[in-house]
Design a protein around this nucleic acid. Structure first.
Length: 301
DNA sequence: AACGGAGGCAACCGCCCGAGC
DNA sequence: GGCTCGGGCGGTTGCCTCCGT
């Protein structure tokens, strides 16, 4: 037996919200708040012929105070890029680092502009050619990569090329994938003792010997703000491993060891492991073994 | 001016997870 | 422990606008 629908689909209005509907919803929530409420029951209370989930979405993405729309700054772009490359399409977590931004907004921004902006820095076909040329002898590798993994691989290559054009991963296929895939150290601070953890992203470029001197990016740590949605202690989240830290800084460098270097490659292998969400679930160990095989294929190419 | 394609974005869909019973 | 339900989330859809022909 299937689940009962959350609302009577036949009697709910769909499509764009009218100003009157917005006003009703806003007035009610401003008066009663959203905490402890029931979104499913809310539309009945205020006489809206809308699905409760639709009301929630409308409030969170549009009516809520202090919502910013459009006009993403360069800094916000960087944060989105870094987090996307690190944790993938976990938009709610990314949104939590950007006050006033909603996950939907960021998702749309990424899909429509930011991705193209990044991929446009290098000629797309050029990258695809390099990738396919290099993996011609190991089709299993490219076949194993999902679109998401390919996309992130491309973005990694391009960012690396920007940071170090001469010795970059992108420009030196001979190095693939024997160098760090992402020159970024991610630190999660205050992950224990009940406090809200922070993500701190730091370029690892300064930790290595500069190769070209003037092409390295700023190595200052960039505080990413409170990690509202949060990871759990000990949870493996892609490159992030939130370790027990006794109340001190839990530092995790996803690229310290060989296996760690490989972790990000596994992103997007969700189809292979039969889950739409393989980021740090309880079955990570099983999935990781499977994903590690995939990485080895990539490593040996 | 009309048409078609592309891009942008609001909204919907369906799945997953946790809380409560 | 199992079931139900609501909240939350990511992926997708569909409409609207813009732009080129």
């Amino acid at each position: 037996m299937g689940r009962a629908p959350c609302c009577d689909k036949a009697n709910v209005k769909k499509g764009p919200w009218s100003p009157e509907e917005d006003a009703k919803l806003k007035a009610y929530i401003e008066k009663h708040g959203t905490r402890g409420g029931n979104w499913i029951a809310l539309p009945h209370k205020i006489g809206l012929k809308r699905c409760g989930k639709s009301c929630r979405l409308r409030w969170l993405n549009y009516l809520r105070p202090n919502i910013k729309h459009g006009g993403f700054s360069e800094e916000e772009d960087n944060i989105i890029c870094n987090l996307y490359l690190s944790i993938g399409s976990r938009w709610s977590i990314i949104a939590a680092q950007l006050p006033g931004r909603t996950d939907n907004d960021i998702k749309n921004y990424w899909n429509t502009k930011l991705k193209k902006k990044l991929l446009g820095r290098h000629k797309q076909s050029d990258i695809n050619t390099k990738l396919s040329d290099h993996s011609n002898n190991n089709n299993q590798f490219t076949q194993g990569l999902t679109n998401s993994a390919m996309e992130r691989l491309q973005l990694h290559l391009q960012l690396q090329a920007l940071q170090n054009p001469i010795f970059s991963f992108y420009n030196n296929p001979a190095l693939w994938p024997n160098i760090l895939p992402l020159q970024q150290k991610v630190t999660i601070q205050g992950a224990s003792n009940g406090s809200t953890p922070n993500i701190v992203m730091e370029s690892a470029a300064a930790a290595t010997t500069p190769l070209t001197g003037d092409t390295l990016v700023d190595s200052k740590p960039v505080a990413m703000g409170p990690l509202v949605s949060s990871f759990r202690q000990g949870e493996v989240v892609d490159e992030f491993v939130v370790v027990e830290d006794g109340g001190q800084m839990a530092e995790v460098d996803g690229f310290d060891g060989l296996k760690d270097n490989m972790v990000w490659w596994s992103n997007g292998f969700d189809a292979k492991v039969g889950s739409s969400n393989c980021w740090g679930s309880a079955s990570s160990v099983v999935q990781f073994n499977e994903m590690f095989k995939d990485y080895e294929l990539g490593f040996n190419m």
